[in-house]
Write a protein that binds this DNA or RNA. Structure first.
Lengths: 324, 324
DNA sequence: GCCGGTTTCGCTCAGATGAGCAGATCCACT
DNA sequence: AGTGGATCTGCTCATCTGAGCGAAACCGGC
């Protein structure tokens, strides 16, 4: 029979009476024939040994401890970590992932709303995540905000509207205006990109994007589920090649490796939108990244200084903090 | 967008800072621009709303709240409920069930050891559970205890030793003696039972059993997994007939229905061992019942006053307390 | 606008709790 | 046995926290 340290057992009994029966340490001392100081120490010991688990079960709960550790480890200005508590109530991993996506987007919307100073101009990328954030924002989240798209958005397979939707919604709900970037995200030839870029309308948008007072973007994993594959910008073969070359994902359409460097210079040269250096230099760059598929790219984003603020879920945060 | 009551959200934020960051309510007030009393109330509210879940994670943890409710609801002298915390670490329901069985047996062994006055004579039944308790008892748990079997034990398919083992082990570890009941549990004819019962050796054991200062027994479900089927006392058909007649399980070999009454008078008349009335009249009757298959019989045991002390697992306890 | 009822607020005060400290106890090694 | 170091114990005291209580704010009906 494996014996459990009798002090450990006592501390469990004390903790039961304290937390479940909410008796005072005095009363517990009486019951267990201990001084109340001993009881206090036993409970402290139980806590220190991790036998007492306190969980805040609420869809909008956050994890301040993880947030602080993220800030410290990666030198972030701010970090928001939404709790995964209560996820077992959802059946199926897919449903759970959707819920976490939604919680994260909600947290991002709230963060944007509460951000002070409220951004005069906000550069946004596009994709599922940014779209979700736009949805969660409430009417009047800002009083006049100039929203600018920061990377090419015209899709080859869908109408431009879909990608533009997010920026427009964010602007509309913030009583402001949206400036769209009328260009594909990835061009076939470098020259085409240069040509489009030099067009006055596009150049003006890019200039506006470069001068935004804050950025809001997500990141995508480098795999067949990437929006760039779905949008037709990249074939499955090209994606496989990127992965083979070390790509872990993309930020504003630019594919990067684990160290945060551009993977394919040629591809990057054909990609239209602000450059990663501009993002790295931004005073406020909010990355919203959630989901198990994005752990790797999330690590790269925070590790290579692409964002100043990270909004993510608990699992991703734990993964990011997990050593290395 | 479904809005969450802003007070509710505040209470979550306050709770996060209080429980995760362990700040004082004063500090939290400073952070959230609230008075410390408001913070206290918010945290209390979060607790009351059930957003704060405090769990004691330890294999030997108990559930004093459930224990008290069991005592109150069923008028028990005592109740021990072992926690299911940490069971997800086991893979498979079977492994989890084994773990709970073991935890419950451990708790029973501990209870016996700490029972005051220590029983001079202890009547025991036999089966998996009692065997497990015997295993978990430690050397010297008592100083001279007279252990008596309270129901027939000679198996038709295995050697008598197996069923006797538990009683012998309990006696040996308690520096005492074991008195075995040298008879099958269920006879084929009433007359045989009477004949055996009138034999002096058997009669003396039964008399000793009747005079025990405490009883320790378990209960079995009425289904094909019953030890009485495995032991060969009952055929699958007989068991099916018992179930059809309303049997929910057996206690010391006697099958009872939901209200605690004997299901089959003839069968009961062929069963050798102490009578249920004797158990109901006992000053200390400790029932050790754990596992999902035994919820129904557990309910019957406590509801019909067959035990004064129940030792069980959290799930069974919850089931027992679940209304009705 | 006014008024009664209800809720919320800030506060007092007493009880509960944790930090820190000196004495007691234990333990290993001579 | 004797000794030095480490740990444990019970205590004082300062701080933290929850109950209870008037005062203020709020709300709906006139």
């Amino acid at each position: 029979m494996i014996d459990v340290d009798s002090d450990e057992l006592l501390s469990i009994r004390a903790a039961e009476l304290y937390y479940e029966e909410n008796k005072t340490q005095d009363e517990i001392g009486l019951i267990l024939s201990l001084t109340r100081w001993k009881v206090g120490r036993l409970i402290a010991q139980a806590k220190a040994s991790g036998f007492i688990r306190i969980e805040i079960v609420h869809p909008r709960a956050r994890r301040p401890v993880l947030e602080r550790r993220l800030r410290e480890k990666f030198g972030l200005q701010d970090a928001i970590v939404v709790s995964t508590a209560g996820l077992d109530a959802f059946d199926g991993e897919a449903a759970a992932a959707v819920e976490m996506q939604s919680r994260t987007a909600h947290a991002a919307a709230e963060y944007l709303t509460l951000l002070r100073p409220s951004p005069r101009s906000l550069g946004v990328s596009w994709g599922h995540t940014v779209h979700a954030v736009a949805q969660q924002l409430r009417q009047g989240w800002a009083h006049g905000v100039s929203v600018v798209q920061i990377n090419g958005s015209v899709s080859l397979t869908r109408s431009a509207g879909v990608a533009a939707q997010a920026a427009v919604t964010i602007a509309q709900k913030g009583a402001g205006t949206a400036t769209l970037l009328p260009s594909p995200a990835i061009l076939e030839r470098r020259e085409t990109r240069l040509a489009i870029e030099s067009d006055r309308t596009v150049a003006q948008v890019l200039a506006a994007a470069a001068g935004a007072s804050a950025y809001l973007f997500s990141a995508g994993p480098a795999d067949e589920s990437s929006v760039h594959v779905a949008s037709g910008y990249l074939s499955l073969e090209e994606m496989a090649a990127l992965v083979a070359a070390g790509a872990v994902g993309d930020v504003v359409g630019r594919f990067i490796d684990a160290s945060g460097g551009v993977v394919d210079d040629d591809l990057d040269d054909r990609t239209l939108g602000i450059r990663l250096a501009q993002l790295r230099a931004a005073a406020v760059a909010i990355a919203v990244i959630s989901g198990p598929a994005k752990h790797e790219i999330a690590r790269t984003v925070v590790a290579s200084g692409l964002c100043t603020v990270l909004i993510t879920d608990e699992n991703t945060a734990l993964e990011l903090l997990d050593q290395t």
